[in-house]
């Protein structure tokens, strides 16, 4: 019962919901939000099963619906933010030069002896959560899905120079956040 094209709602829940949740969590790191979006995804999938073409894999199709919902969420997310640049570079006297305490002494590399260590990854996750949601989204699109810059710019409605500026700002903040954890 309740099957269209041989796909039942039980099948969707039993075989795909955990994967979709893991996908959403890797991108969002917000469990309640991720669960909501997965539920929305399964509902939309059921209502438009007739547009699903057997040629593509069901999981791929579901993931693309979920991805659309995640991007919509990020696009709606507050985009106003305080540009962190003034906390890193002198905006007065020696315009554009490192502020003393941010110019990074102390060697990063010797601290991170193994970057894939669980601990390091947890610290990185914590720091990622301090970034504006949209920036985190851009980083996830770039590194998780290895999307081309052009596609990321389209999804997030930004120009390519916006993208570099955002990545630059994000890295300054991440570096500062990690330093504070380590030193």
């Amino acid at each position: 019962m309740n099957t269209t094209k041989g796909i039942s709602h039980t099948d969707l829940v039993e075989n795909h919901s955990d994967y979709l949740l893991s996908f959403a969590m890797t991108k969002l790191n917000d469990l309640d939000l991720a669960k909501d979006l997965v539920q929305d995804t399964l509902v939309s999938a059921l209502t438009k099963l007739d547009t699903f073409e057997k040629r593509s894999k069901l999981r791929t199709w579901l993931t693309s619906i979920l991805n659309r919902k995640i991007i919509d969420h990020w696009r709606k997310a507050e985009t106003r933010y305080t540009d962190p640049i003034s906390s890193f570079f002198d905006q007065d006297e020696k315009k554009g030069h490192w502020l003393m305490e941010k110019s990074a002494s102390g060697n990063f590399e010797t601290i991170v002896d193994d970057i894939s260590k669980q601990e390091t990854m947890t610290e990185l996750s914590d720091c990622l959560d301090t970034l504006p949601a949209k920036w985190r989204g851009i980083i996830a699109s770039k590194f998780l899905e290895e999307k081309e810059s052009e596609q990321i710019c389209n999804d997030f409605d930004i120009t390519s120079s916006n993208l570099w500026v955002i990545m630059h700002r994000a890295k300054l903040l991440l570096r500062d956040c990690l330093k504070n954890k380590w030193i």
Binding site: D18, S22, M25, T26, V38, M121
Partner: peptide
């Protein structure tokens, strides 16, 4: 490295 694999979550 962080985004290489999906973190695993279950309902």
């Amino acid at each position: 490295v962080k985004f290489k694999d999906l973190s695993s979550y279950e309902f």
